[in-house]
Design a binder for these strands. Structure first.
Lengths: 244, 244
DNA sequence: CGGCCATTTGACACCTGTCAATGTCTGTGG
DNA sequence: CCACAGACATTGACAGGTGTCAAATGGCCG
């Protein structure tokens, strides 16, 4: 299997651990059950217990929580190479919903498949748990952002985080990336109103920092954006002693 | 060992699972290494990798993340019966700091002790992972709160959450509880300024809902507070199929 | 007694939400 | 081909929630 055919997840993990051929094979085997989901219809609904997790191979998803008053808070976005509902499977609980933002392709991973893979290749298990830990760090970082950054910095931070995550799987680079989110998605993720999201985007554009338009993010001043957001990618790249 | 002598953690887990005598014994053995920490000095500092986790047996702790501009965001509070740094140990990463809010007592749990206990009593392992999952659900709930609730509802929600958590370990009831937090702690947890926290507390007090004063929270209208916060304790009590 | 910390309060500015209207684009059906 | 509806984006006016600044109060401890 050449590197061109690698799944995004494989690509992502390989950036952090040198996986052996056996481990790579087991990993690719997890991608057997290919499924597609259409945009806008929930894959897993709040409160429903999940039988399986998914590895996203193409498209974007958001995980969110609905409130009694109808507003929603997007907890995180998933891009190719990310797990969906990994914790739901490992811990058998699920308290938020997943909605495909566009039509997506994902590999279904049964709990039994996952546990079997873990048993065979402990290093792979570690890698996947690392990915789960990274997801958590992102949620915490979002909490910090919403709690302690103003709207401009929050937006800049989110756009930069997505950039970093996408670059890991070969989608986009420092000049920009394709992004199917609407301004409503951004609003629900950042704790802002859609109207204000629009204002913020205009300001960032007119400041010559970044343009978000027609499903594409274009960085005009990456460094300036990093400074505005005080973006430190450490929480995304924590290698640490985990993978010895 | 009579129920009076049970540790808060034992008490909490027992509320959700009927643990056998063996399991209880293993659990209590995890409490061997008793340590104390003084208020205000970090136990684990951001970025430092943890060798051990702690089970908090008395006192309050907060876990927080510092930003470059000096502001801080408190991610969660820990009360007796809670784990400190459980994920740090399981996943060997730690990206936030822990600070005792008052002088505390905690039991140090080495990674090896924990893994050994897990190996001996799978049901105990499941219970502890349940606790970890509950911690995550709380972080998500805080994210939703900061993103989508106004200051009054956020405050009400936090006070109610702490109440529920403390009741589980026998500290306080529906009439109130002791709470050593300062208004600065509340501000850093809720993403507000300390001045505004004061205003919110006054409003809640003058509305006859709740009083926060002299280290004590007193509920005057529990139901009214629940309604204001749209508080649904489901995320704290998820029993689910986890514990069959 | 004199600091120091937490709390409290008022005045004011400003960030962000809400409401409302308009523009643009796409897909659909006549 | 055109009319129309619907979703998303854009913009302005205005209101309100929250932050900031500053000052006063009170309790605790050396």
């Amino acid at each position: 299997m050449t590197s061109v055919e690698q799944s995004p997840l494989t690509r992502k993990l390989s950036a952090f651990v040198a996986l052996s051929d056996v481990e790579l094979a087991v990993l690719e085997r997890l991608h057997q059950r290919r499924r597609t989901f259409i945009a806008g219809r929930d894959m897993v609904h709040q409160g429903q217990s999940a039988q399986a997790a998914y590895i996203l191979s193409a498209g974007w998803v958001c995980s969110y929580k609905l409130q009694a008053d109808g507003t929603r808070q997007i907890v995180d976005f998933q891009v190719p190479g990310d797990f969906l509902g990994l914790r739901s499977v490992l811990l058998r609980t699920s308290d938020h919903s997943f909605e495909p933002i566009v039509d997506i392709e994902a590999a279904e991973v049964l709990t039994s498949d996952l546990l079997e893979a873990f048993a065979r290749t402990p290093r792979l298990a570690t890698s996947i748990l690392w990915a789960a830990s990274r997801d958590e760090a992102m949620v915490v970082e979002h909490l910090v952002g919403i709690g302690r950054r103003d709207a401009d910095a929050r937006m800049a931070h989110l756009l930069l985080e997505l950039s970093s995550r996408l670059m890991l799987v070969g989608l986009g680079g420092k000049e920009g990336y394709d992004c199917p989110l609407t301004q409503y998605h951004l609003a629900d993720a950042l704790g802002l109103s859609a109207v204000h999201v629009n204002r913020v985007l205009r300001k960032l554009r007119e400041s010559g920092l970044v343009t978000f338009r027609d499903g594409h993010v274009t960085f005009h001043d990456y460094g300036g954006l990093v400074k505005l957001a005080e973006f430190d990618a450490a929480y995304l790249d924590q290698t640490g002693p985990l993978l010895k």
